[in-house]
Amino acid sequence: MTECIQTARTLQAGSPGLGWCVSRTVPNMDCDAVKATDSELLEQLRQADETAFRELVDRFDPGLRRMACLYVDPSVADDVVQDTWIVVIRGIDRFEGRSTLRTWVFGILVNIARRRAQREGRTVPFAALASVDDAWAGTVELARLRHPELGEGYWAAPPTWARDPADAAITAEERALVLGAIERLTPAQREVITLRDLEGWSGPEVSEVLGISNVNQRTLLHRARVALRQALEGYFNG
């Protein structure tokens, strides 16, 4: 996935001016507001408005490509995204507006990408099965939770970091560390944390697109964040 994100960064360098508003603007909008914007856009699409279609592609295509890279090789991601758009174009009249346009479009991509990945024999992130399969030893090692007086289950010593990232801008080394740690997560954890914390989606949206319960989504998110915190602890205390 790092490769894919890097590819994305390389591509964007020479292509200023195209709109990118997949994640960080929409989740902050009220759900009803999103649906109102959606229904306006949908109406234009149904009336064969090509400008509206271009807007839709501009809005979602970058995120779709990044999402596809969670499942398939970057060289195949374009095909998966293209197939997604074809299904979207042919399905516009069938979209009933029960979900947002974004979760509908990305849900289509997830189905296509999973099938393609299976065909190519890749490990497919499948969050729906994950909480059953993942072994979980707890948020921190038990050995760190043995207070000399309070006993088991209480911190023996506070989990201090020698360096505090505080509000400083992320360094190139920290970025590489974070992306590397995401790549080492279980596929299902990677799927959830990428959408939640990297792309900035809301919990209910992620649950809907991945077809998992909110509880499962939060469990996977917790485990992923804990693993990343652990990686950062090693780095800051190293």
């Binding site: 001016g17 997949v22 295509d61 990232p165 505080a166 944390i193 964040r225």
Partner: peptide
């Protein structure tokens, strides 16, 4: 802090559609 770092490591602001 971890969540913020992941967010800051996140996707680029722009991306070309072929």
């Amino acid at each position: 802090a971890t969540i913020k770092l992941v967010h800051d490591a996140g996707p680029p602001q722009e991306f070309a559609v072929n």
